[in-house]
Design a protein around this nucleic acid. Structure first.
Length: 210
DNA sequence: AAGAGTACCAACCGCCACTTC
DNA sequence: GGAAGTGGCGGTTGGTACTCT
């Protein structure tokens, strides 16, 4: 597939959006919807590429966006889902109404990842006894060898959709039995239920083979 | 008060998947 | 079946705000 560079054509604006541009985009979408993102900026009279318009709308201007700090519940949900799904932010976002994949991704990198890394330094299983899920150690599940290593990590770089856990490149989840109860239990047949259940089963199968 | 270091987050880039022709 | 167009996703960057010294 030939790649289609964003904002390739000259004269398209980049960088932060102005309130005027926001207003134009909002009123255009409210009036006509966003059937075709590529055509939208032209129709709306914006000097932006369609991709930029789409991102701005989805991550910032959408009326149902929830802004502000993540609640404790949201944090825990992110940690749990990340343990099962890896860096599939869009999937995680479907579980958190009003939150965008971008927001979750940023939050992960700026807060949760560090927190987990810190808890790894404290090392270990002793710390886990203290016990919130946020402080729990992580257990690596090697999907290829079906082994679970008692190792702590927070390496999410291998867990993108390009290298899903099934590829054997390191699937990990928290060593917590409440993953199933919470995620699968509460989410059965939800939007992402099937997909999550698949990865969950992968995790559990590997786990039980220990 | 000012400079350095750090944290945060909006936005861009490149790639992949899906759809259409 | 394959090329082209488009949407969507995750990784990354760069600017700004904030904190520390």
């Amino acid at each position: 597939m030939v790649k289609t560079p964003c904002c390739e054509s000259m004269g398209l604006k980049k960088g932060p959006w102005t309130p005027e541009e926001d207003q134009i985009l909002i009123s255009h979408i409210q009036q006509y919807g966003h059937g075709n993102w590529r055509a939208l900026p032209k129709q709306a009279g914006l000097l932006r590429c369609g991709k930029s318009c789409r991102l701005r709308w989805i991550n910032y201007l959408r009326p149902d966006i929830k802004r502000g700090r993540f609640s404790k519940e949201e944090e825990e949900t992110i940690v749990k889902l990340h343990a099962v799904l890896g860096n599939r932010w869009a999937s995680i976002a479907t579980r958190l109404p009003g939150r965008t994949d971008n927001e979750i991704k940023n939050f992960w990198h700026t807060h949760l990842k560090k927190r987990i890394e810190r808890s790894q330094l404290q090392l270990g299983y002793e710390a886990s006894s203290a016990g919130t899920l946020m402080d729990m150690p992580q257990v690596v599940v090697d999907a290829t060898s079906s082994t679970v290593k008692g190792k702590l990590l927070a390496n999410d770089s291998l867990l993108s959709r390009k290298y899903p856990p099934a590829a054997g490149l390191g699937f990990y989840g928290t060593a917590s039995s409440d993953i199933s109860g919470d995620i699968i239990g509460n989410n059965s047949r939800s939007v992402i239920g099937d997909e999550m259940e698949f990865w969950y089963n992968m995790f559990m199968n590997s786990h039980h083979k220990m």
